[in-house]
Computed example of a mutant assay.
Amino acid sequence: MSEWRKVQLGEVLKITSGKSKPLKNLQPYSKKNPYPVYGGNGINGYTNEFLIEKEAIVIGRVGEYCGVVHKTKGPSWVTDNALFSKEFIIKTDLKFISYLLKYHDLGKLRSQSGQPLVSQKPIYNYEINLPLLNEQKKIAAILTSVDNAIEKTEAIIKQAEKVKKGLMQQLLTKGIGHTKFKQTEIGEIPKEWEFVKLGDITTLTMGQSPKGDSYNNIGVGIPLLNGPTEFGKVNPKVIQWTNKPTKICKESDILLTVRGSSTGRMNVADKEYCIGRGLAAITALRGITDQNFIMYHIQKLATTILSQSTGSTFPNIDKQRLSNLFIPLPKLKEQIKIANILYTADNKIKIEGNKLLQLQNLKKSLMQVLLTGKVRVKVNELEAVK
Rank of each mutant, 00 (worst) to 15 (best):
S2E: 13
E3W: 01
R5E: 11
Q8V: 05
S20L: 05
L23R: 02
P28I: 08
P28K: 11
Y38C: 07
G40H: 01
I43M: 06
G45K: 03
N48P: 08
F50Q: 15
I52H: 08
K54H: 08
V58H: 13
V58N: 05
V62N: 05
E64R: 12
Y65S: 14
C66T: 14
V68I: 06
T72C: 10
G74L: 04
S76Y: 03
F84K: 15
F88P: 09
I97P: 02
Y99K: 05
Y103I: 01
Y124L: 07
I128Y: 10
L132F: 10
L133P: 13
L143F: 01
I150L: 05
E151H: 11
E154I: 04
Q170S: 14
T179S: 14
K180D: 14
T184C: 05
I189A: 09
F195K: 03
K197G: 08
G199A: 03
T203V: 15
T203A: 14
M206W: 06
D213Q: 02
Y215T: 11
G221V: 04
P228H: 06
F231E: 05
K237W: 04
T242H: 00
T246I: 08
C249N: 09
I254W: 01
T263V: 10
T263A: 07
R265S: 05
Y273R: 11
A280H: 00
G287V: 13
T289V: 10
N292I: 08
Y296M: 13
Q299W: 02
T313K: 11
Q320N: 15
P330T: 12
K331I: 00
A339T: 15
N340D: 15
I341C: 08
Y343N: 12
N347S: 11
G353F: 03
L359K: 00
L362W: 03
K364V: 01
L366F: 00
E383C: 09
